[in-house]
Design a protein around this nucleic acid. Structure first.
Lengths: 251, 251
DNA sequence: CGCAGTCTTGAGACAGATCAACTCACGTGG
DNA sequence: CCACGTGAGTTGATCTGTCTCAAGACTGCG
């Protein structure tokens, strides 16, 4: 489990600064923000040491990670790797609330690297204190959060009552968007997560994930190569299976 | 469908001001914020006219409402009342993003009153512009959003793989917290939403909801009276069924 | 090259959906 | 005030999709 190095390898922070909202990137606030951030590199499968006392904002400079809840879920959650809540990729800002929060009790979240990963870690309190000096930054963070909430809600709605096929299709479309920046037509990319991770994030077993992929393969909609490469023949068709279609209101 | 009255009945706004973060309630910023808010009353089953062009922040001064996605969900979502995304009660601040957002396509959300309901509606842009003058307000909104996101994620995780019994128990515990401010022991309250709404929000059919309630009734954990009154004998026991317990790891 | 872990495939079990009556609460009008 | 009707809620029988358990096949690492 990695610990935070205060002597930050500079590239993560430089990238972070470049990603700040335009017009603030070179303001003095940006300097102060960067001073708060600690850069950290995680190797594959390594996890960010949880912070018991403080909320954190983690910016992903590069790589891919999963946000998990180690305690599984149900009465008997035999989830070995921990329940997967979300996947995050380069450019994402992840908020990792401290576990104590009497909140819903699952609340012990950890970030685990799916592949070598560069992070910039901010204590949420100091970050926000500092960002108060530059409301544009605060607002940008808020706007990201509202969008994340919106996405999470939409996803939740879908999770509620969707077939395995729809969930897998939705997952693939979502990955195509985020990993290959592709929303229609064909595309190919490498999935950084295992079948187990996929299943855990969708509420399915690995067997079901595998079976659904086989069906899509037989339908000619996807092709796989090795364990992680995947090619989607028609993202729009998958979106349709996912129940995502921009359905023309038929009234 | 209700339209917004600029001539605001003052009580909603007065309540809103009282709910602002301490120390800001009487700052000039508060005046400006209130000037932006439009108060609105919704009758039962009435819905907030959707705003096509702007994001909104809606503060619920009193009553109860559901946030729905009218287009159902799957390929053939015959959900008559619309898919329920979340329930909201007095004191909640709800963000209703404009539908266009090319975001996940379900994104046409509406707020529908479950019972007579007092709202204060803010255009998100102006609200945030104004709140930039008082970072404490902005930060308070951000903090609420991060918590809402956290809750939504935790919920999502649970929804993924939980039995019907666990979902119903979780729902009841959550309602006890929010409607009766009760986290343990016995409590009673009125559920403002129908069985259909409950089912839609949990991804279950009304039949399953009914059956699960019957089982809990037979187990002596809940008692019902009429259509909406419900009494929970032991919230902690329900939390255990919901898989919410602070489970002792047994390895 | 061989081993360990990941992925795939198959057969049977079970939870929840679906279809179909039936009952009851609650608002309406006599 | 009570009878009535409508829609909400309950209960039952059956059916389907996904989980579970159990082998087997492949990937990719040491």
């Amino acid at each position: 489990m990695a610990t935070i190095s205060p002597s930050a390898p500079p590239q993560g922070l430089a990238l972070f600064r470049a990603a700040l909202p335009p017009g603030t990137g070179d303001a003095p606030t940006a300097d102060r923000l960067c001073a708060l951030g600690a850069a950290l590199h995680l190797a594959r499968a390594e996890q960010l040491a949880p912070a018991p006392q403080e909320d954190r904002l983690v910016w992903i400079a590069g790589g891919a990670a999963k946000l998990i809840s180690p305690h599984g879920h149900g009465p008997e959650g035999p989830v070995p790797g921990g329940q997967v809540l979300a996947f995050h990729f380069a450019g994402d800002l992840v908020s990792v609330l401290r576990q104590s929060a009497r909140e819903l009790q699952g609340g012990d979240f950890r970030l685990v690297a799916l592949e070598p990963c560069d992070l910039v870690i901010f204590p949420a309190d100091s970050f926000l204190d500092c960002a108060q000096g530059d409301p544009a930054v605060l607002r940008s963070v808020l706007s990201r959060s509202l969008q994340a909430l919106h996405r999470s809600r939409t996803r939740m709605m879908q999770m509620g009552h969707k077939s395995a096929a729809a969930r897998i299709a939705d997952f693939l479309v979502s990955m195509a968007e985020r990993l290959a920046d592709c929303t229609a037509g064909p595309c190919a990319f490498a999935l950084p997560m295992s079948r187990r991770d996929i299943g855990d994030s969708l509420g399915l077993t690995i067997e079901t994930v595998s079976r659904q992929l086989t069906e899509l393969r037989e339908a000619g909609l996807v092709a796989t190569e090795g364990r992680s490469r995947i090619a989607l023949a028609d993202v729009a068709a998958l979106a349709r299976i996912a129940g995502r279609q921009v359905e023309q209101p038929k009234n």
